[in-house]
Structures are given as structure tokens and as C-alpha cells.
Design a protein around this nucleic acid. Structure first.
Lengths: 341, 341
DNA sequence: ATGAAAGCGCTAACAA
DNA sequence: TTGTTAGCGCTTTCAT
């Protein structure tokens, strides 16, 4: 593939510029000349060297997306959506995962893991606002997810408090009164799940129902195993919830597994609501009621945000223009709260 | 970030080469000089321009991975493993998905979707051998998955026939005799699932058990929904299997859902074995017995294959050096065949 | 409408 | 050990 513009130019007996004009569909080229050059291109099998083009133009056509864990179907499905939307804008996506570890998130935000990128979409877990303060990278950054930052970067999320309230409201409507929350991490001061926890507490309080800490079960992570462990601990503690609102679907499914092992029926004994609407929740023995964030809109807003800043040439963060972008969500009612028809 | 080597050189009062030496950890630099340059680097916040470096060296440090569907946890988990292994080799991973459509797979193989890459790992579904014959791209390619090609590219897979036989053997050992196969696609001549189907047939035949077509249920895709539909069709047809071997875990889980809806117990009435060992299978109300391919080894072999060819400078495919690389697999026995303890 | 030439930022001969 | 310089392949003024 070491055929360059120069080779084509020589072959066609024209200048490099003319070949470049043809390659880039420049308007003012006579049809005859275009054809002549095109023939040389075909004969030589010329393919433009994008790296050179990128060096010259200062853009690479690559966006990076960094999520906590690709093994979590929510992020895998979201990544798929981002790839598709990016393709529409003629961008390809470099994917990275951080394990939700602050250190990795910082590296990614600084562009240390993926450096040849035009823009970055980051879904942080542990990242602290100060980590982004001195960000020395000119690729526009957009933040995803429920953490709230007062930073000069676009942030895309659903209204997590409202979503959590909707989930709890649903359980209250079913007559449940001892509604547990599964998935509050306790090993960190700045709790990532605080918005959903706040929604849980607010809705219960508004309904005049107690929201004791004994019904809040912490987890170390957000996987099936964490949900199972938290549920087991909660039951062992003697708390007898008649409903569970989980931080995400994986935790909810892990919890349902434990409930089943303990001989508790879902939803008769314990109703369960998750969060994320991953495909997995639709095919269990008991299908999972969940909050469904509009992943496609999230992906679209994220890519658009980056692409707009790239177009505008304003890659530097500007507090004035930083936006809070909201995607919709919906409660999807299934068997884990309604029972099997 | 428009600080270049030249700026640093001026600031430090040295030549560009010296700065380059420091940046690249070249050996023969006096500590004093190194420190002096480093200070200039820090003061100016210099960051090397990788695009320029890549243009110069002819490499980008990016590997592309194209899988059928990121929403399938198997591929998401595999992608995560590839990203990690690639990082060890100082490569980042550009991720793409093809939907398992031939057209997309061809585009990817030609480098039309992701073009600035050093190497490509492709997991094809519909791709035909002839699609790769005239491949005009100098990035080394390695193929993943169960399709068998006689092509001059490394191919990494587990022994699908043996794995399928192991699964069926397990069911036979449990005394099952009417073992259905779920997930043979019928809309294509070159059946992607043929190896697993062959294993199913071979093992049954070896055991002197009939393997009638009436127990083979085709699917249009490989998702939960496809498994559910196939299972329903099979039951409606009057075939009464006492076991099911599914092409993958998603199909198996979809099938289990339908069995449950029909009042059939797993494994008492119908035992189920899947394929892939996705996390999801470990947390259902009935956990899933499955074939567990060694994803980490697959990822490692794939990245190694590409990196070796990159190192060797031999990016052109060579029939002589094309290898069939095997990763291990294991049967993981769970409740869908053994029952709950 | 086409050509000549500069230069994006870097690496690597070759020189000193 | 450090400096000079010639490109990598492309786009882009500025001429013609």
C-alpha cells in the first residue's frame, strides 16, 4: 500500500495537487482530467494514507468511549449505540473500560490510554471533579451517567431522582411498604448511587412511609454477585422487605436469585424493580420490571455534543456553554412486580 | 496542545533531536541534559503528537476488533478481554460491530469502516472465503470463531465439534435420549453453526441414539428471542425433547423461559445446556450448564497473532504461515442439568 | 483549472 | 553525546 499521491501524479503525468483534487472531489476539475487521474489511481491501487491526512488536518476521525465495564450489558448495549451514531457522523469509536476505578478514569480523561482521538465520551464512577480541573487535553470531553459535576463539560443523563421515584411509586401503588434499596456503595464518600437513593428516600417520605437505613443494602460493585451478596446480607440481618428497588438490573437479578434460593417468591413475597432495562431482564423465569433509560438518545446526544464542539473549533471547555442534557426514561412493568399473567 | 518538539527545543535551548531523545527514553543522554529538557517539557505541557509519530513510523498503535453484536454478552466479554491484552502490548482497540451481516463484514475486512489501524481481529458470521481472497489491505488480519476457512489468515477458535460432543455426552450420561439442537440457522447454505450441529449428531450417533431432523430447531438469529421462538416451535410441533443443547447461552435462556411458561421443569422435564458461559447464565432462577470457551486465551492468541505479524514486518498473508490456533473449553455443570442441590 | 512548494510534528540517518 | 536535515503523505496557500 505504499502508493502515494506522488506515484499517482507521476503515472498520470500531472501534479500532486491535481490528484489530490480528484481524490477529494474538488469541484474545478475537467472531466477529462478527472478520468485520466482516476485511471492512474485504479491502476496503481492507490489508497489515501489517512494518518498523513490527519496529521495535516489535525483530526483523526476517532472518538473514544470509556465505560466502567463492558461486561455489564447496559454499557455494552450503550457502546453499540454510540458506535452506530458515530458511524453516521463518519467517526469510528475507540473503546476503553476503566473498571470504574478513579485512577483509570483519570488516565482516560487525560488521554493517556487512547491518545489519537478527536473527542472523548466518558462514563465515570469514581472520578472526582478536581480530577478534571486541570485537564490538559484539547479533545472535547462529554460526561455520561448519574454523577453530578459542576464542570465545564456537557453532561448527559436521565433524571435519576425522578426515575427512582417512579420505580418506588410503582411499588407503593402495589401496596408494598417495606421497600429496600440495593446497591448503595458505602466505601466512598461521594456515593455514585446517591441520586437513586435520594429518589427512593424522597418518594417513601412523601408517602409517609419510613425509609430506614436498615433497608439500604450496600454493595461493593454492581454485578450479579454484588446483588446476590447484598440480598443475602439483608435477609440475614432480619430485615424482611416486601419489595426491592435495585441500583441496576444486574443487582436486581442477583437478588432475585437469592430470593429464589431462600424460597421467597417474586413478586408475591418480594417485588423487585431494577434499573437499565438490559435484555437479560426480559428472559428470566421471572421477567424484571425496570427503569428503561433511552440509550439511543443518550448515545446520540453524546456523539452530537462532541461533534458539535469539533465542528465549532471550540475544543476548549467553556463553562458558559456546558450543558445538562436529559434523555428520557420509562418504567417497564414486568413479572417481578406484576406476577405472571 | 499545539506545543511541538521544536517549541520545547527552543525553550530548553537544545536541538529537536535531543528533546526527542528524552521523550523516547533514548539511552545516551546525560542526566543534566535530561533534566533540563524535562523541565521545559513540563513547563510547556508538551505532549507528543502521535499522529505525526505514526505517519513517520507507519504504525498507529490501534487494533480493530469487529464482532457481530456487542449486545451479546459473549462478545462484550470477549471485547473486554481483547482490550486488556492489547493494552499490555501498548495497543488500543477500535471496536466495531457488523450485525453478523456479510456486507458489513466485507467492509470491515477491507478496512472501510476503520481505516487507521495496524491490525484487525474479525469474528465473522456470514463472510464467505471469497470475500477475503482479493483483500487489498496491508493490516494483518486474524479470524475468530467457529467458521472454518482455508485462507491464509490465522484462525482462533475452540474445538467446536469436541465441545458440542462434550455437551451432548453430558446429557446422555444423565440418561436423556431425546436431545434437541436449538439454533441451526437455515437461511444460509454455509451454516455457521454446522460444527456444533455436527458434534451433536456425531455424539448421538456414536451412542446409538437417533438424531432426527425433527429435533433440530432453526433460528433466525442468536438472541434470547430466537431461542424462545425456536423452543416454542419445537414444542408446538409435537416433538417432546427431554433435553436441549443450544447453540449459545442466549438461545438456551430464551428456551428455558418458554419451557417455564409451558409448565415444563428444568431440568426434571427438560435438561438444558448452553454455549459461551456468559455471566447471565450463572444467576437465573435455574443456573445454566454450559460450554465455557477460554475467552482470555482467545483474546490473548488473537492479539499475539496480530502483534507478531506486525513485529515481523510480514503484514502480507502467507498461506505457509497461517495457523489454526486452539483455545481450551470446559463443561460447566449447573442447575439446568443437575437440578438445584 | 492546474502546478509549485511549504509545512503538519515527528523519527532516524548522518555529521559533528 | 548532541545537532542537522531529510522526508513520512497529505493539504493548502499562492502562483500561473
Amino acid at each position: 500500500m505504499n502508493v502515494s499521491l506522488k506515484d499517482v501524479a507521476e503515472r498520470a503525468g500531472v501534479s500532486i495537487k491535481t490528484v489530490s483534487n480528484v481524490v477529494n472531489n474538488y469541484r474545478h476539475v475537467t472531466p477529462a482530467m478527472r478520468e485520466r487521474v482516476q485511471r492512474a489511481i485504479d491502476e496503481l491501487g492507490y489508497r489515501p494514507n489517512l494518518t498523513a491526512r490527519h496529521l495535516r488536518k489535525g483530526r483523526t476521525g476517532i472518538l473514544a468511549l470509556a465505560v466502567p465495564e463492558l461486561g455489564n450489558p447496559y454499557f455494552a448495549e450503550l457502546a453499540g449505540a454510540v458506535i452506530d451514531v458515530a458511524a453516521e457522523h463518519e467517526y469510528t469509536v475507540l473503546l476503553d473500560h476503566t473498571g470504574g476505578r478513579r485512577e483509570q478514569e483519570v488516565l482516560v480523561s487525560q488521554g493517556f490510554r487512547a491518545r489519537v482521538i478527536d473527542g472523548l465520551i466518558l462514563s465515570p464512577i469514581e472520578l472526582e471533579p478536581e480530577d478534571l480541573l486541570g485537564r490538559d487535553h484539547d479533545a472535547p470531553l462529554v460526561l455520561l451517567g448519574e454523577r453530578e459535576y459542576s464542570l465545564p463539560y456537557d453532561h448527559i443523563a436521565i433524571d435519576n431522582v425522578a426515575a427512582a421515584r417512579t420505580a418506588v411509586r410503582h411499588l407503593l401503588d402495589l401496596g408494598r411498604t417495606r421497600i429496600a434499596f440495593l446497591g448503595a456503595r458505602t466505601d466512598r464518600v461521594n456515593e455514585p448511587s446517591q441520586l437513586r437513593l435520594r429518589g427512593w428516600r424522597t418518594e417513601l417520605t412523601a408517602a409517609g412511609i419510613p425509609a430506614p437505613d436498615s433497608l439500604v443494602a450496600p454493595t461493593g460493585g454492581w454485578d450479579h454477585a454484588d446483588g446476590a451478596a447484598a440480598m443475602a446480607r439483608l435477609l440475614d440481618s432480619g430485615a424482611l422487605p416486601d419489595a426491592v428497588f435495585a441500583y441496576n438490573d444486574l443487582i436486581a437479578i442477583g437478588a432475585m436469585r437469592v430470593l429464589s434460593e431462600r424460597g421467597l417468591r417474586v413478586p408475591e413475597d418480594v417485588a423487585v424493580v431494577g434499573f437499565d432495562d438490559i435484555t437479560e431482564g426480559r428472559y428470566g423465569t421471572v421477567t424484571l420490571t425496570t427503569i428503561s433509560p433511552d440509550k439511543h438518545t443518550i448515545a446520540r446526544l453524546a456523539v452530537q455534543s462532541v461533534v458539535e464542539r469539533l465542528r465549532g473549533g471550540t475544543t476548549a471547555p467553556e463553562a458558559a456553554s456546558a450543558r445538562e442534557l436529559r434523555a428520557d426514561f420509562a418504567l417497564v412493568e414486568r413479572e417481578s412486580t406484576l406476577g405472571r399473567p
